[in-house]
Amino acid sequence: MQLAVNILVLTAIYALIACGYVLIYRVSRVLNLAHGELMMLSAYLLLWTASLFAGHPLVAIAAALGLSALVGALVYLFLLRKLTGEMALAAVLTTVALGVLLRGATVLVWSAQQQYPAQPLGASNSTLALPGGARISVWAALLVATTLVVYAGLFAFLRLGRWGMRMRAAGQNPLLAAQRGINLHAIYALAWSLSTLTGALAGILMALDSGLSQTMAIIGLKAFPAALVGGLDSLAGALLGALMVAATEVMLIHYVDPLLSEVVPFLLLIVVLMLRPWGLFGTREELDRV
């Protein structure tokens, strides 16, 4: 039972992170390899807002989320916008470089030690007992709930709203979308902002649950296989991919070898790339475009 809960929590973490990769890729065909670092930055931003608004956890979290969304938009406006129309690879390498930069910068500002933003906020972390003898921490439960809400919200946003429709249009055919008067730069900036926001939710909840250090960026990178297994341009795929990656990882760690934790997602990634490179729900023609 505890195993099932562990799988559920890890699925929620991976899914919440993976939807950031999917959003950006689906809209602008850019793979954001700095997603993990941006997520980590958001968690560190919470550390800062927590010291500003000590005692008001909700205000601090809202401020950190707002700042993160802003950071996402700024990253697009100042870095990726200049690379529109260039080789897709240049954009990816730029995000890799951004990741290196952010890792260095966060250590410089906040030091490399493990930190706990829950302390200045005065937020406690109790565990809930579930039927079947399993336990789950409050923050982890909140993370699972958040993931569900975020996915429901994203589906609704992309299906129903005007901006969601514009986003899908920009993803399908940027040229035609631009011809119809859609402001592509605004759409891309929005996608980056939303992606960083969802990443920030994941980063902040994880930091509140179990503390914050440089290893968070690696968790972000490990969520990438989840996005790819499901298909890089499919939100539903990211959810299923997260479940597959999380289940395989937890099972293998439990029954075979804890050291495997670092590689399981990437093993799965290689298998999927060999058998079905466009992922479970991805569009097949995508492959020739990149």
Partner: peptide, 16 residues
């Protein structure tokens, strides 16, 4: 940390 940050910045500068 300084090294990583500066390295990332230089790489971005060249790419852009």
């Amino acid at each position: 940390a300084v090294n990583a940050a500066a390295f990332g910045a230089v790489m971005i500068a060249f790419l852009l």
